[in-house]
Design a protein around this nucleic acid. Structure first.
Lengths: 355, 355
DNA sequence: TACACCATGTAGAGCGCTCTAAATGTAGCG
DNA sequence: CGCTACATTTAGAGCGCTCTACATGGTGTA
C-alpha cells in the first residue's frame, strides 16, 4: 500500500480530486458535473454523483470564486432591520435572489455613512457580483465610484448615471395622494411632519408642498425623523400651536404613531378632533386598535425588482441605467374623517414655515 | 520594453503582485502588511500601503479564504425578518460580529426545514467559520450532523450535545412570571394560546401548565401560532366558549394582538372584561393605543452572546458545549387588571384541555 | 473505406493569496 | 573579529476549482 500523497494526515473536507479518484474519472469531469454542464454521459454523471455523496463532498465556494471570477453572491446594504420597511424590501430581495441561485451577503449601515462605506468595502473584498444599496446615505459621488467597481443598484435614491440602476417608489405621487385625499375630506390646514435627514423625506415634503400650493393652501412642514421619537417631538410643537392643523401627514407610520401617542396624551382624539395619515402601510398600522390611514408602497416588489434588474445588468453587461418607479396607493382607514361642514373653514393666515 | 507577462489585456482588479512590484518588495511582504503582522519595518510598511492606495488595491477575500482556510464569516440562519423578534436578535448578532471583524452571510428559512437545510448547505459550501441557527426547525439529529462540520450555535432550541452551543431565554421562567402575575391579580381562569409548531411554544406551554397546577388551577391550552392569524383563530373559539377565561396568556405579542382584535370585535373590552398578556415586548406592544402587558426577552443580548460564544468556540477549538440562559422580565402595562373581589371566584370545573 | 463532425473526456495552467522554510541583514558579545 | 541571536524578507509550494486546448471514439456521409 502506497502512502497517501497528501502532505498531512489532517482531516479536511474532501476535494474534487478525491471525488474524481473514487469515481475513476478526471477532476475536470467532476467539475463539469457539478456545474451542470450538458455534455457528460449519464453513466459517468451518476458515478461522480455517487462518489460525491459517499464522500459527503461539497464544492468549495471560495475556490470556485477564485477560479471563475464570479461567486453568485450579492451584497445587500440595509440601514436597520428593525424597521419594517427594510425588512420587507429585504424579503423581496431574498426571494428573488434565491430563485436566481444567488446568495446574499448582508451588511447594515445604521444610517451612518462611514459604516455604510465600510460595509461596501467588505462587499468589494468579497468580489460580490453586484450590490444593492437600500436607502443608502453615501454621497452620490462615492456611489458612482462604487458603481465603477461592481454592478450597483440603489433604492430610495434618485441618482441618474449610466452605471447605476435604481428602483424607487414614487414619493411625489404618494404625497400628492395624501394631500388630495385630505383636501377632499374638507381639510385645509394640513401639516406635514417630515423625515428629517431620511433620504425619501425631501421628495415627499417637496411634493406635499407643491400639492398644497396647487390647491391654494398654505404648506406647513415641521421637522420629524424616521421613528416614533421624531413624531412625538413634532407632536409637542403641534400642541403648542395657537391654531392647530386639522390634519397631519406624517413622514411614515412610525412617526405618525409617535405623534398620535403624544397628541392623545395632550387630549386630542383621532379622528374626531384631528386626522392623521402615515406612510408605509406597515403591519402595525393595520392592527385594529390603531387602524391608521396610510400609503402603501410595494416593498416586496421593490426588492424583487431590484434583484431582477441587477442580475440583468450582471448577465448582459448592460452599460446604461434602468430606472423603475413603482406606484404607491392610499389606504384609507380609521384615523381620517371628513370635516363637518361649517360656514366656511377660514384658511389659516400665512405663517412662518420650515423645510 | 518587455511585454507584460499577463496573458490578457483584460482590466481586472489589481493583485498583491501588482502592489509588490510597485512598492519594490516581495508579494509575501505585502501579505504580511495586509495581515497586520508585527515584524515589518515601518519604512516598508508605508511603501506597501502607499502603493496599495495608489492602485486602489483591495485584498481578494476568496483567495485569502482558499489559502488560509478561514474567511472571517459567519452564516446566520433566520426564519423571517418581518418578525421583530428575529430582527432584534439579528441586530445583536450584527453588532457583535462587526466588533470581532466578522462578516455575515445571511439566509432565511421561512420556517420550512428543507429551505433551512439548503441555506445551511450553502453556508457549508462557503466554508463559513461558524453558523448560528436562530429558532431553527431542523431535526436535532441533522443539527448534530451540521455541528460536526462547522462550529455551531443554536438559539431557541434546548439541544444538549457537546458540539453545539446554545443561547436561550428562559421560556419556563417567562411563562411562570405571567401565570403568577395574573394569579396575584386575582385571575383563576387563565387560558393559554400556544405557539403551534413554533420551537419555543412547547417549553412555554409546559411551564404554563406546571405553574397553573402548582397554584391549584386548571390549565387550558388552545392552539395558536406565531402571528396575528393564530391569535384571531384562537379568539374565535374563545368567543364560543360557555365559560370564558378572565385572562389570556398568548404565545407572543403578535398572537395577543390578533386575539385582542378579534375579541374586541366580539364585544369584549380590555382590560375591563378580560386581561391579556403577550410575550416579546415588541416595539408595537409599547405603543400607547395598544399598551400590551408582555414579557421582555433580552433579544439583542441574545444575539451578542451568541456571536461571542461561537467565536470563542472557533478561536479556542473548544470541544464541550456552553449553554447560556437569559432571564426574561414581566412588563405590566394596560391590558391587565386586578379582578374585582367577589364573594369567592368559583374555580372552573375540570374541562377537556388540549396541548 | 475515408473523413469530417460531434459528443465526451482529460491535462494542465492558472485564479490571488497564505504560510513554511530558508535567506539575508544587523547587532551584540566574548 | 568571528559567531550567535534575532529581526526582516523572500522564494515557492500549495489552497480547490475553472477553463482552454486538445485527445479520443463513434457516426453519418460521400
Amino acid at each position: 500500500m502506497v502512502a497517501r500523497p497528501k502532505k498531512r494526515v489532517k482531516r479536511s473536507a474532501p476535494t474534487m480530486e478525491d471525488v474524481a479518484k473514487l469515481a475513476g474519472v478526471s477532476r475536470a469531469l467532476v467539475s463539469l458535473v457539478f456545474r451542470g454542464e450538458p455534455h457528460v454521459s449519464t453513466e459517468r454523471r451518476e458515478r461522480v454523483l455517487n462518489a460525491a455523496a459517499e464522500l459527503n463532498y461539497r464544492p468549495n465556494a471560495a475556490a470556485r470564486a477564485l477560479a471563475s471570477h464570479t461567486n453568485k453572491t450579492l451584497g445587500i446594504m440595509l440601514q436597520d432591520l428593525h424597521d419594517a420597511y427594510f425588512a420587507e424590501v429585504f424579503e423581496g430581495i431574498a426571494v428573488e435572489a434565491d430563485s436566481h441561485g444567488y446568495r446574499l451577503l448582508i451588511g447594515t449601515g445604521g444610517r451612518r455613512p462611514e459604516d455604510e462605506e465600510r460595509t461596501v468595502e467588505s462587499f468589494l473584498e468579497y468580489r460580490v457580483d453586484g450590490v444593492i444599496l437600500v436607502s443608502s446615505m453615501i454621497d452620490d459621488s462615492k456611489l458612482v465610484g462604487i458603481s465603477q467597481q461592481v454592478p450597483t443598484l440603489v433604492t430610495g435614491n434618485y441618482i441618474r448615471v449610466p452605471s447605476i440602476d435604481t428602483v424607487n417608489a414614487d414619493n411625489q405621487r404618494g404625497a400628492e395622494l395624501v394631500v388630495n385625499y385630505l383636501f377632499e375630506l374638507g381639510h385645509r390646514r394640513i401639516l406635514h411632519i417630515d423625515g428629517g435627514v431620511e433620504l425619501s423625506s425631501r421628495p415627499r415634503s417637496a411634493a406635499y408642498w407643491h400639492a398644497m400650493e396647487a390647491l391654494g393652501l398654505t404648506p406647513h412642514v415641521i421637522m420629524g425623523g424616521y421613528a416614533e421619537k421624531g413624531g412625538a417631538d413634532a407632536a409637542e410643537s403641534i400642541l403648542k400651536m395657537r391654531r392647530r392643523p386639522t390634519a397631519v401627514f406624517a413622514f411614515n407610520d412610525r412617526v405618525a404613531l409617535g405623534a398620535m401617542d403624544r397628541l392623545e396624551q395632550g387630549g386630542i382624539t383621532f379622528p374626531n378632533e384631528m386626522s392623521i395619515v402615515g406612510y408605509d402601510n406597515t403591519l402595525v398600522s393595520s392592527l385594529h386598535p390603531i387602524n391608521l390611514t396610510t400609503v402603501n408602497q410595494p416593498r416586496e416588489e421593490m426588492g424583487r425588482l431590484a434583484v431582477g434588474t441587477l442580475i440583468d445588468r450582471i448577465d448582459s453587461h448592460r452599460q446604461s441605467a434602468v430606472h423603475h418607479t413603482l406606484q404607491p396607493t392610499l389606504i384609507p382607514r380609521g384615523t381620517t374623517r371628513r370635516i363637518p361642514v361649517r360656514s366656511k373653514t377660514k384658511q389659516g393666515s400665512p405663517r412662518i414655515t420650515t423645510v
